[in-house]
Design a protein around this nucleic acid. Structure first.
Lengths: 343, 343
DNA sequence: CCGGTTTCTGAAATCGGTTTCATTATAGCA
DNA sequence: TGCTATAATGAAACCGATTTCAGAAACCGG
């Protein structure tokens, strides 16, 4: 009897030999085609698989079936808790279907984004979730020619036939602003990361701007800040707050990362929340409740977003050819101490 | 001229045909064996690849080469920022080498951990990073028989020949406790998630216990809390704080997640930090500086941990057969307002 | 007892690459 | 000129699965 080296993996041929059947038969067993197999054959194969501790090689299987059982996930910023929350939702759906996720972090760098997508393609991923940097629109449009299903998360790409899943930015922003107005705030600043190219930022900012005239706050108080340079945020605060004419000001942070830097800047300037300035923010981070008397925030159903995005992938894989959908979930306003009623 | 269906991917055979050479020659080009190829052949292949927009199929390549160019990463809790910070370090090393990462989140569930590892094995991953649940030691030991390199992150498994990378828990814990003692604290509580099976928790707690007698605080104030049930934490606080006899108490949180729940519990009880109780914690979370006057914390070099772990994987892949290493990085104590000197 | 199903199984082709080995052409040298 | 070394290339086997197609055995009705 010949024995393989220890380093050699057990193959379907080994199983076939031990069970005394052909590779074909073993393959049918693996594929769950039990109805064409005799009971005794099934038993012998089962026995052999357990004895050898056999695990089929997905690369070989994938090559023939033209399926990798891999899903790519390209995130602009994996250290943002939003990303991992979405990942969890996506992963749970995948696991249940026997798929695994290849995670890539682009650090908001479009070059990295391109490289990663090419890399994923060469692994022949069966689906692709993208939270795009927003600076690769032409490149992404080419993806549409491939047959691989793509779902965009949070950020859309214009003109394109991709499914998208994210927050209903219009509803959420509008609800938040109406809440502030009802509480008596008349001076509202909206602080966002650079808006160009990122649809969710654009949509949120657009609502802020659109409601300004109607409700009597200034659309000029829409500030874009690059969080890499902390001075800019500091200047913005000075500019906004010094113009306060007896009116209680409120600052609206466009996401959790902005909020973090904002709180840091306020603290270093000795400005108190909510005494000197009220604060509201997108993203209900785990720590939002802990800052002072809590920061009022708009919670996103992140887990649900991840699940839904991945479910779209599978539906597309299973042949759903319907037109691209934009799926937008409502945000939920969580009221805390940072936005007290104006007296 | 025959034309393939749109859905068909370009293969090496197509490139060979267009370039007017054999598959073999194209393969050599792809493998970078330029020295055996004539200049003109190289040029024609390059041209053909670009024209066809060809991307080699990693499954086919992997099947023959017995390499998947995939690394598995199994994390106990991906929503812990520690995990994503480590992931970033690991990913950067991978990307540079042309590898991709399959990320799995076990939610501290040993059954999920087993399933994921089997799944990864069937993808024939070339390396495996595990932040283990700590409840699969027998199963993990079997992994050692496989030839695939494994590196454990943060949590070790007894008796095993795996490389490990993590924090120097002894140094870090000891440094923190000495810091507290120097500041004049004599009543120290250490609050940890359940210690059984998780080496990093055990190591940290062991130092707390070991130094107790020597420095005159009580080793009884080591509390294990299951964070699923918030009442337990509340009871622990009551128990510890009511025994305070005029001495200023300090609570030492065993990681960032514990700290989060701790702060929440203290706030809901109306206990102020640092007036009523001082606080120190493992993990310098992004928000630690923002709570009150800041929480004193032990920062871990997470990015470095991820990088180093992945580098070990590649070294093992390249044939390094040296005995298993335990690599422990020093933590850095970041002093903030939550631990003022006792007056 | 015979042709026709039905049930179960296997030989061989295939997926898209890599690798081994053989072949051709050209150069170098006596 | 003839013979060998070297450079450049290709045919075919191979990796480990799946799938097509065909064959053997058992069963069935007339």
């Amino acid at each position: 009897m010949t024995r393989k080296k220890q380093t050699d993996r057990v193959t379907i041929t080994d199983v076939a030999r031990v069970a005394g059947v052909s590779k074909t038969t073993v393959s049918r067993y693996l594929g769950g085609q039990y109805h064409v197999l005799s009971e005794s054959t099934q038993a012998r194969i089962k026995e052999a698989i357990e004895q050898l501790n056999y695990r089929p090689n997905q690369m070989a299987r994938g090559l023939k079936r033209d399926r990798s059982y891999l899903i790519g996930m390209v995130m602009a910023d994996i250290s943002n808790p939003y990303s991992t929350a979405v990942l969890r939702g996506a992963e749970d759906v995948c696991k249940q279907k026997g798929y695994s996720i290849l995670v890539c972090n682009t650090d908001n760098d479009p070059a990295k984004e391109r490289e990663y997508i090419l890399m994923l393609q060469s692994h022949r991923i069966d689906g692709l979730l993208i939270n795009t940097t927003g600076k690769n629109n032409d490149f992404l449009r080419e993806l549409a020619n491939d047959c691989t299903p793509v779902v965009l998360i949070d950020r859309k790409v214009p003109v394109l036939g991709f499914d998208t899943v994210g927050l209903d930015n219009e509803q959420a922003t509008s609800e938040a602003i109406h809440f502030l107005l009802n509480r008596g705030y008349k001076r509202i600043a909206y602080v966002s990361e650079p808006i160009a190219g990122v649809s969710s930022r654009r949509e949120r900012a657009a609502v802020f701007t659109a409601l300004a005239d109607q409700y009597g706050y200034s659309a000029d108080d829409l500030y874009e800040v690059n969080l890499q340079s902390p001075e800019r945020l500091s200047e913005v605060l000075d500019h906004f707050l010094q113009r306060t004419q007896g009116e209680k000001p409120v600052i609206f942070a466009a996401n959790g990362v902005v909020l973090l830097k904002l709180i840091r800047a306020l603290q270093s300037k000795g400005i108190s929340v909510p005494e000197d300035v009220a604060v509201i923010s997108f993203d209900d981070t785990e720590w939002a409740a802990l800052i002072g008397s809590g920061i009022t925030a708009i919670a996103q159903p992140t887990y649900q977003i991840g699940m839904t995005a991945m479910e779209r992938i599978f539906q597309r894989m299973e042949g759903d050819g319907s037109p691209a959908q934009n799926i937008a979930f409502a945000g939920k306003l969580i009221i805390r101490g940072s936005t007290p009623p104006v007296v």
